[in-house]
Amino acid sequence: MTNTALLAIGGTLLCGVLAVAGVHVYATGKAQREALVDRLSHSGPRPEGLRVRHFGGVDRRLRGTAFGKRLQLRLAATGLDLTVGEFTVYVLGGAAALWLIASAALAPFFGPVAGLVALWAGNTFLNWQRQKRIEAFINQLPELSRILANATAAGLALRTALGMAAEELEAPAGEELATVTAQLALGRSIDETLGELAERLPSRELVVLVTTLVLSNRAGGTVVGSLRNLTETLEERKETRREVVTMLSEVNATAYTLPLLGLGAMIMLNSMDSGSLARMTGHPIGQAAVLVALALYAVGFIGMRRLGKIEV
């Protein structure tokens, strides 16, 4: 099979994966919009589970394994409307497509490397989505603390205040608090439910809020003053985090730009001298040089990401 045929097959497979993912995103967005319309019109929430789930057989098999259980917990922490089977099929399909494209566009040696990069990208996407959800939740914590303080000052119980916050706040805070309220309705204690919330979305700000609520619930004292002071502190930390992210945006952009420059250099070299990468990677010395270069790029990427990661 020629390189052109491999490139065409890989491109077709990648387009198919992107098309399926696009349809999924469109269907999810449409369902969320209809749910918001129903909520604003006071017609009651839409029944859950209306979206047709794909790859049910793969999902059932994976859920029975340790890998599937861990992946299910990670997907739940990201808030993505994806099953274990759907995510696995999408990632494997993307890896296969990139394998074929890299083998055809560069050299057969780069096929497995591209497949491994695709698997790493899937794992990185989950981590990024989870961190994005945590950041969004942290940004809503001042408003959450304010709602709880006002509800407590009005004489409402903590369980009622959490339910009120779940109704007023948007996702992800509204969704997480709705889960907490549902667990409380089933008879679970406030300590357990808030502790699980802090484990799902770990952050210093949420730990402080949860600790304040748990201690006040145990001691039976008022938390209005503590929550109002916490609201001011969370607002200040929110602004500080925003400034830090803005200052480090250039470092994070550079971390992703350098590997792309290396990839562009290889593509340009192969286009200038067709088959040069295949000849280079056809020899053990060339393969070792490429692996060393990839390792150095990986070390540089990880190092710059560490430099651009500051805990506030």
Rank of each mutant, 00 (worst) to 15 (best):
M268C: 14
E34S: 15
T222C: 01
T254A: 08
L307N: 03
L234D: 03
A76D: 15
R133T: 15
A27I: 15
L106V: 07
R204F: 15
R61F: 00
T179Y: 02
V290D: 06
L307I: 11
G49Y: 13
L177R: 01
Y90L: 04
P108E: 00
L80D: 09
L7H: 11
Q183L: 02
V180L: 02
G22H: 01
K309S: 13
A102T: 04
N217L: 03
A8T: 11
A154C: 09
A151C: 14
L230C: 10
T88Y: 03
D38Y: 09
L230N: 07
R33N: 05
G56C: 11
I310C: 04
V117W: 08
D38E: 10
V245K: 05
P47N: 07
M272N: 04
G221T: 02
L18I: 07
G57C: 11
E175V: 04
E192I: 06
A289T: 05
A77N: 04
V25K: 05
A161V: 09
G262C: 04
I190V: 04
K132N: 14
W120F: 13
V89Y: 01
G195V: 12
A255H: 12
E199I: 06
A295H: 08
N127M: 00
E250K: 13
V292R: 06
I138P: 08
A178N: 15
E167L: 09
R218W: 01
R159L: 09
G115M: 12
E239I: 10
G220D: 00
N3K: 10
G10V: 12
N252C: 08
L82T: 10
G93Y: 05
L98Q: 01
L277E: 04
V245T: 04
G16Y: 13
E170F: 05
A21F: 06
A198E: 01
A178V: 15
L209E: 01
A8R: 05
V180P: 04
A96L: 15
L215M: 05
A76W: 14
R305F: 12
G68L: 00
T212Q: 02
F110V: 05
F55Y: 13
G22D: 00
E86V: 02
Q32I: 05
G57Q: 12
E196R: 02
T160E: 03
G111F: 11
T179Q: 08
L116R: 04
R279Q: 07
R146Y: 01
G16A: 14
A104S: 02
T124A: 06
V244M: 03
A105V: 11
I134N: 00
R51T: 13
E250T: 14
V23D: 10
R237Q: 15
A166F: 15
P45I: 10
E235V: 09
G220L: 00
L40M: 03
G264V: 00
N3R: 11
K309P: 05
M266I: 06
L248R: 03
L71T: 13
E143Q: 07
I147R: 11
R237N: 15
L119G: 10
S271M: 15
